[in-house]
Structure formats: structure tokens, C-alpha cells
């Protein structure tokens, strides 16, 4: 419920809104940072990702945990691989991809209570 509501709020904030109000808001509130360092496209169009990423993750999570299906496409690990900051290697932190937008939308993320927010760069780099 919370997530759906938040998704709608975020989508509404992104898509609509008159320019005036947006400017005013921008001055008051720190806008989320979208620094995607790795090029290329996401697994779905941006609009869809903004609206439905939580549903995709939820669906994948149950498939992975319950059935052992580890398709990488919609996995949390795959998100982190692309979206983690190059400096910190993390999707959290002040300018972290997940953290900054969720802070802006005021939606708490439960993922990283248990999952690491770090990219697997070291294991990937190993020969």
C-alpha cells in the first residue's frame, strides 16, 4: 500500500506539475540525484521503472527466495550493479541512487536492512 501510494506520488511529481510550482519546490527541497554512471538502458523504460520498480523487485524476490529462480534481469543485485555510485560503490548515502530519491519521496526502503547496498565490483574484477 505504502509503496503503491508512494509510487503514485513520485510519478505525479515527476510527470505533472506546473513549472512554477516545481521551481518553488526545487528551491525548498533537495531534489533527488540521478547520476547513472554506467551507460545503456535500464531493463524497462524509465517511466515504467519509476512507477513499477518496487513491484518488479517484489515479484523477483519471491521467485528467487521461494523457487530458487535467480534470473538476473529484475534482481536487486542487477539494480545495484548499474546504479551504485562509482565513488562509494553504494546505492545508499547522500547521493546514492536509491537513497536520494527515496528520501525525496519520503518512502523508507527496507531492502538494505538485510541486503548489501554495495556493487560486487571486487569479485567481478577478479580474473
Amino acid at each position: 500500500m505504502m509503496r503503491i501510494a508512494a509510487g503514485i506520488v513520485v510519478a505525479a511529481l515527476m510527470a505533472a506539475g506546473c513549472a512554477d510550482a516545481e521551481e518553488k519546490r526545487a528551491r525548498r527541497i533537495a531534489l533527488p540525484v540521478f547520476k547513472i554512471e554506467k551507460g545503456g538502458t535500464c531493463v524497462a523504460p524509465i517511466e515504467e521503472m519509476r512507477r513499477d520498480h518496487m513491484t518488479m523487485l517484489l515479484h523477483q524476490r519471491d521467485r528467487t527466495v521461494r523457487q530458487g529462480l535467480r534470473e538476473p534481469r529484475n534482481s536487486l543485485g542487477n539494480c545495484i550493479e548499474c546504479h551504485a555510485s562509482r565513488e562509494t560503490g553504494s546505492v545508499l548515502g547522500k547521493e546514492g541512487f536509491c537513497a536520494s530519491c527515496h528520501a525525496y519521496a519520503s518512502v523508507s526502503i527496507d531492502c538494505f536492512e538485510c541486503h548489501t547496498p554495495l556493487r560486487r565490483q571486487r569479485t567481478a574484477a577478479r580474473p
Binding site: 530458487g68 543485485g77 536492512e113 538485510c114 541486503h115 548489501t116 554495495l118 560486487r120 569479485t123
Partner: peptide, 22 residues
């Protein structure tokens, strides 16, 4: 918990045990 391994989520307040390294 911090510093979890990538394939092995662990978090405060939940129960855990051997996963047979699933």
C-alpha cells in the same frame, strides 16, 4: 548488521540458520 555478503542477506530482528549455502 552491516557488511553483508552479496548473495546472503542478513538483518536485525529476523531469524536465520544454515541455508545449505543455497
Amino acid at each position: 548488521v552491516s557488511g553483508q555478503k552479496a548473495g546472503v542477506p542478513r538483518g536485525k530482528g529476523t531469524v536465520e540458520s544454515c541455508t545449505l549455502c543455497v
